[in-house]
Write a protein that binds this DNA or RNA. Structure first.
Lengths: 197, 197
DNA sequence: TGTACATCAGTGAACGCGCGTTCACTGATGTAC
DNA sequence: TGTACATCAGTGAACGCGCGTTCACTGATGTAC
């Protein structure tokens, strides 16, 4: 039966949020529309009232994930001086599997969780991923203040973060995973902050 | 009709090589058994004379890809002094899409091309990926010579390489992709060799 | 404000399709004597 | 070395399954007067 306009908006948000969590957790191909709709407490058929295709859902789910991640980062670094902000972001980024506190979903980054899969997605999805990459680089460049090559340095830091998190989630051994994360963190902070070295 | 023992061995190698190329190029899920067998100039049904499942093929194809990649690295750095060897490996790794010369298939690294997908694979596949990660770290540690934290430094370099290559292949703009690669290369060599800085 | 009708969010079954895998079959290879 | 038979690599059709998507239908919401 027909729903009110506000209910409809809420339903769509619920689908996107559910899809975001499932896709980041299990990958894009092994999550079906029925899984997503069930997680949003709906049945399969209603999906196409809100989205034109699975690809469009993926794009919106990735955007949702980035927005949620950056909102969390913004909140966490608000009022902090640049060096401390960088430290905080690096720590949080390299804690993705643990970062869901108080019953919230973990703050997973599409670039690390889906990385190479995103390169093979439809243009609409890829565009969101590229934008997310730019936003992450800009956020980190902001923490480096005004130094000679702050944008270049920020891009390198993003590569380390994404690479380390990807490789950490590959490890089956928890110790090896946290060592990969720890080494990345130390390498970044040693070079770009004055809190180490 | 039955084939000779040597033909059978050659056939299996052909399947693995074909699968390796297809998987690295298009991802694990969008390449079907029929695609692989067709690329190996066979029909679908014969597959299970050589492999117990698609997962087993993926594992062998990934191992093939790593072996081929490291054989190429070994050949390229043979006789070179450590610093030059590091430079060469970094350059070659960050050139994956271009590195197929003389009509050969490009030398793609599973960690960069499939990254996060490998974490969600069957244990047999994941184990091969983890082993590949270790081999890459060991190869690079060897180029760093005997310095205080050569193994830790090597692991950081691997994270940069994998992250940068993943993000570079995400870019739709060729200039942005090569900038990502270039920055990673400079960052690594500036810090770990005396050829820059 | 009340009534009549059009709209459309959501249901649940169904569609065609391609997937991984199986199977009966063919005929050359390998083995036993 | 030659013959008879068992083996098995490869074929190509078929299997069941789950996928993304479509559709007729329901009934509450929104709109027009």
């Amino acid at each position: 039966m027909r729903r009110s306009r506000s209910e409809t908006v809420e339903t769509k948000k619920r689908i996107v949020a559910a899809a975001s969590g499932l896709f980041l957790d299990r990958g894009l191909d092994s999550v079906g529309m029925r899984d997503v709709m069930e997680a949003a407490e709906l049945t399969a058929g209603g999906f196409y009232r809100h989205f034109s295709s699975k690809n469009q859902l993926i794009a919106e789910a990735m955007l949702f994930a980035f927005d949620r991640l950056f909102a969390m980062f913004d909140k966490e670094i608000r009022g902090k001086e640049p060096v401390k902000a960088l430290e905080r972001i690096v720590s949080l980024y390299l804690q993705q599997t643990l970062s869901g506190r108080d019953g919230q979903a973990p703050y997973l980054c599409p670039l690390a969780q889906l990385g190479s899969q995103l390169s093979r997605c439809a243009p609409v999805v890829r565009a969101v991923a590229i934008e997310g990459h730019k936003r992450l680089a800009a956020l980190i460049a902001g923490c480096l203040g005004h130094r000679p090559h702050e944008k270049a340095d920020a891009k390198t830091i993003v590569s380390v973060l994404v690479g380390a998190e990807t490789l950490a989630s590959l490890a089956t051994d928890a110790r090896s995973a946290s060592r990969t994360r720890f080494l990345a963190k130390v390498a970044i902070l040693q070079q770009f902050s004055n809190a180490y070295g």
